[in-house]
């Protein structure tokens, strides 16, 4: 029994155990737990203000949970500053993209660059441009001069330059034209094939269905539905995602 337990833990890339996070005095996450398997794509669904972003920020060390445990690749990362968490192989793509607008696209990529990781092919600008061909033609444009869709691609590209094993994306499809959302979905599927694990928060159910394996529905700061995405039935959506 213990051995299987160990084995099970090993193929999890990320385990969040009963974390409690606060903004000031507001208690946002209540004993929130989730586990992610290596190489999978998982999505956090839920209405606004239920704590999706806070969950991602807590994992990334931007918000520090007061209680609980976060294990990444078998190592506790709770309380570490975000730059150390990033160095361990976690990449974060924030909600509003947060491109460095005064830096060129190449410089934005340079900011994200980190040493290669053992067992992974390192990301280089050339490899990035294969994934996001649009960016190649505007290498020397300033980050502030490209469209929202291109910024979203650049934000992901910048994070990839850190050679992460797990990428956290906060509402990547938000504010993008449907045709750009298509491209984004293709890129995420491509990344999955390369062995990168992906955790995203989304509101766009169709988009989530088209790329994810696993779904966690968050409500009132807890995970209230934890299953394979194919088991996400209309009734479940009705129950948790309706207002």
């Amino acid at each position: 029994m213990e051995i299987t337990q160990d084995k099970k833990e090993n193929h999890y890339i990320l385990e969040v155990r009963a974390i409690n996070s606060f903004y000031g005095k507001a208690h946002i996450l209540h004993d929130l737990s989730l586990e992610m398997e290596k190489g999978s794509v998982a999505v956090l669904l839920g209405r606004n203000g239920v704590g999706k972003s806070t969950t991602l920020k807590s994992i990334m060390g931007i918000v520090i949970p007061k209680r609980g445990e976060i294990i990444f690749k078998g190592r506790s990362i709770l309380g570490l500053p975000s730059y150390k968490i990033c160095a361990l192989g976690l990449g974060y793509v924030p909600e509003d993209r947060r491109i460095f607008t005064g830096l060129t696209i190449m410089e934005n990529l340079e900011v994200g660059r980190r040493p290669p990781r053992k067992g992974f092919e390192p990301w280089t600008p050339d490899r990035i441009f294969k994934l996001f061909p649009n960016l190649k033609n505007m290498k020397n444009r300033l980050g502030g001069q490209i469209s929202g869709g291109e910024q979203q691609m650049l934000s992901i590209a910048r994070t990839l330059m850190g050679n992460p094993e797990l990428i956290i994306l906060d509402e990547p499809s938000e504010g993008l034209a449907p045709v750009i959302v298509d491209q984004l979905g293709e890129a995420i599927i491509e990344l999955k094939k390369e062995g990168v694990s992906i955790l995203l928060a989304e509101q766009n159910l169709n988009f989530a269905r088209s790329i994810c394996d696993k779904v966690f529905i968050v409500d009132h700061g807890r995970v209230c539905f934890d299953n394979a995405i194919c088991n996400l039935t209309e009734e479940v959506c009705e129950q948790y995602l309706a207002v």
């Binding site: 931007i62 990033c86 924030p94 460095f100 410089e107």
Partner: peptide, 24 residues
């Protein structure tokens, strides 16, 4: 230099810089 690029990035968004692995 990389240092210079990081400095310019820091003038814009320090929190994001930390999330990209830079010890500010």
């Amino acid at each position: 230099t990389r240092w210079g690029i990081l400095v310019r990035a820091a003038t814009e968004d320090r929190e994001m810089l930390a999330a990209l692995g830079v010890n500010q």
